[in-house]
Design a protein around this nucleic acid. Structure first.
Lengths: 143, 143
DNA sequence: ATACAGGTTCAAGTCGACTTGAGGTCAAGG
DNA sequence: CCTTGACCTCAAGTCGACTTGAACCTGTAT
């Protein structure tokens, strides 16, 4: 496949594919003249990368987890990442509940609503210091 | 409270507090000389902001959701954000399952493992185009 | 009165993940 | 053979969320 085919099949722009290749997350099988040639399996790789990104992993982390440098993959790393995800799922769930409640609750200031406060407090549990720093789901995107 | 107290109580650096104030997410009640003075309730606000950030909301989104500009908050927005979170929770869960499986599975290449592929595929469902762009949970943090 | 710890402003820098732009190459079609 | 459009490289720009640095005040303790 040439890059245009991958673009069509994956929905990702060519610039992103080149960038991922540069980072070592995917690889082209060779060149036809100047042009990159990709093996169809790159689509699976890209799906995995998207999944990881959607789950909040950085490209480096994804690379570390699925492109074994050593004899094999680092199972410890996978498991600890899974634990982190569990933690984040908890937070996300708390936030979602908080939002749904806030949307339904008539209180003018949510800080006066004990139910809301309870939800916020519940979310804080077990993670008193903040360092996740996860960015938003915002993009001008044509989607 | 002066800024140092807020720093101690929230764990956030003073620079972040000033930044949040500049963005209109929190507000100081006044000044003692040059120095900002905060009402203790700012701690609740900060907890909410942290929660939102942890859940992947941008500062602007948080501002939009909890600092009603108009007559009252935009309940539609809250609900649609909640739906987005549901979607992300699904993805996170799929990823987590994928990771746990990958850690346990003996297959040398995970793309050869049908179970893993099934997990990845499950995650892709209902979100064929990618645009979330959520950043990582990484930080040098002393936590 | 003086020192100084701890505030303050404002501009600029950083980081990750890309995107954009300028300028160059090349394979295929007419 | 020549044009054209798809592809290439490399440098620089962008965006959000902060951080850092320089230069400057000021309340409080000695």
């Amino acid at each position: 496949m040439d890059i245009a085919d991958v673009v069509k099949a994956s929905g990702l722009p060519a610039s992103t594919l080149r960038y991922y290749e540069e980072k070592g997350l995917i690889s082209s099988t060779g060149r036809k003249g100047l042009r990159r040639t990709f093996h169809p399996s790159v689509l699976q790789q890209l799906a995995l990368i998207s999944l990881g990104r959607g789950a909040g992993l950085s490209l480096d982390e994804i690379g570390a987890m699925f492109t074994p440098k050593g004899p094999d993959i680092d199972r410890e790393l996978l498991l600890s990442k899974a634990d982190e995800l569990d933690e984040q799922i908890k937070q996300l769930t708390a936030m979602r509940n908080g939002l749904r409640h806030a949307a339904a609750c008539p209180a003018p200031d949510h800080f006066e609503c004990p139910k809301f406060l309870r939800l916020v407090r519940a979310a804080e549990k077990g993670k008193l210091r903040i360092q996740p720093q996860t960015a938003a789901l915002t993009r001008k995107g044509k989607a």
